[in-house]
């Protein structure tokens, strides 16, 4: 009834409503492809030939005769795999990936886009890309039969006939999600051991985390928002994996009330319910700085007047993407002023 921006819309994800937890683990019959296709161009994975077995976050165990080399993925999962060194052969997502900031630093030329509207996936194109596995993202309430990123059970069942679908749950803390991705790519043959690029990226991530912890000692309070004509949507850090991680390592988010999941919705009259030192404004579809300033109540907020409204970026669940944003956040926490208290 009430239109709310989807909690994960700004991060390019959506939750499938409802979804009865069946709890039953669906063990997929090993339906290995013949494996005669060449590895995807640009893939740095060095597959071992042996049998491959992987148990995903929805308790599905996928067993194949050979290690998968041709990977298809839902957009968010794809961007993360890419940064781990795996170039997907096909992706499907919810918008034109060329316009999605998540793919800004990625070369899409070797990858077939088989869907750019939520739930609209070309099965023919997907099958033509001959994926060995399909990597998807899952959220609370998803099951092996019904998960986020697909139109419905029927579509998911058809896609599973093309290749097994492996889900990476996007819940809990961001670091856990990244580590799940790391385990997945390691099983696919990406070197994550000492001296590898992934290990370097991980070290940089830890360094950025420490930097953020240090910067957060400034004690500045942070409020992530989405804004439109209806009012201000304030995000609850514990409900977002990335924000939860920042909070765990010391970033001071304003405590948000209300019973709803993910957002508390404030009318413009109530825009000053919480006065943070720093706003993080969702980059996707939210009001621009100029539009925020046109709202008389927002224009009165000290963080706005001090110019302490920064972009809240969409970052995929991998070390380099998260490192880049944490560095920005640490910079703001270090240089912005304590204006609210």
């Amino acid at each position: 009834m009430r239109r709310t921006p989807d909690p994960r819309r700004h991060t390019g994800r959506r939750l499938l409503a409802g979804g009865i937890a069946l709890g039953a683990a669906l063990v997929l019959a090993a339906c290995g492809s013949d494996g005669s296709d060449a590895p995807a161009a640009g893939s740095s994975a060095t597959p071992s030939s042996g049998p491959w077995s992987y148990t995903d976050d929805l308790d599905q165990t996928v067993e194949l005769d050979r290690t998968p080399v041709r990977i298809a993925a839902y957009g968010d999962a794809a961007a993360a795999l890419w940064h781990f060194g795996i170039t997907p052969v096909a992706i499907f997502t919810w918008m034109d990936p060329a316009k999605d900031s998540m793919f800004d630093d990625l070369d899409l030329s070797e990858t077939e886009v088989v869907g750019e509207t939520y739930g609209e996936i070309s099965l023919e194109k997907l099958a033509a890309a001959k994926p060995d596995i399909i990597v998807a993202t899952s959220y609370t309430g998803d099951t092996a039969d019904e998960m986020y990123g697909f139109k419905d059970k029927t579509q998911l069942a058809k896609i599973k006939e093309i290749a097994p679908v492996v889900a990476v749950a996007q819940v809990g803390s961001m670091k856990d999600v990244i580590e799940t991705n790391e385990e997945l790519v390691a099983s696919l043959g990406v070197d994550t051991g000492e001296g590898s690029r992934v290990a370097e990226d991980k070290a940089a991530f830890e360094e950025a985390s420490d930097e953020l912890t240090e910067a957060a000692k400034s004690g500045l309070t942070v409020e992530p928002i989405y804004a439109d004509g209806d009012g201000l949507y304030v995000a609850k850090a514990p409900d977002d994996p990335a924000l939860k991680y920042y909070q765990d390592i010391g970033v001071n988010f304003t405590e948000i009330g209300g019973k709803d999941y993910y957002w508390e919705i404030l009318s413009w009259e109530n825009a000053d319910r919480y006065e943070p030192d720093i706003f993080l404004n969702a980059t996707r579809n939210s009001y621009s700085m100029e539009q925020l300033g046109e709202q008389p109540t927002f224009a009165r907020l000290k963080a706005y007047q001090a110019g302490q409204v920064h972009p809240w970026d969409t970052s995929s669940m991998d070390y380099p993407s998260q490192t880049a944003y944490m560095k920005e956040l640490a910079g703001w926490l270090g240089s912005d002023q304590d204006v609210a208290s």
Binding site: D230, G231, E264, I265, L266, S267, E269, N270, R273
Partner: peptide
Amino acid sequence: GRVVVRPGELQVGI
């Protein structure tokens, strides 16, 4: 519309 879903609001069209 302003009082039914405080601290948010319901649009007049709805």
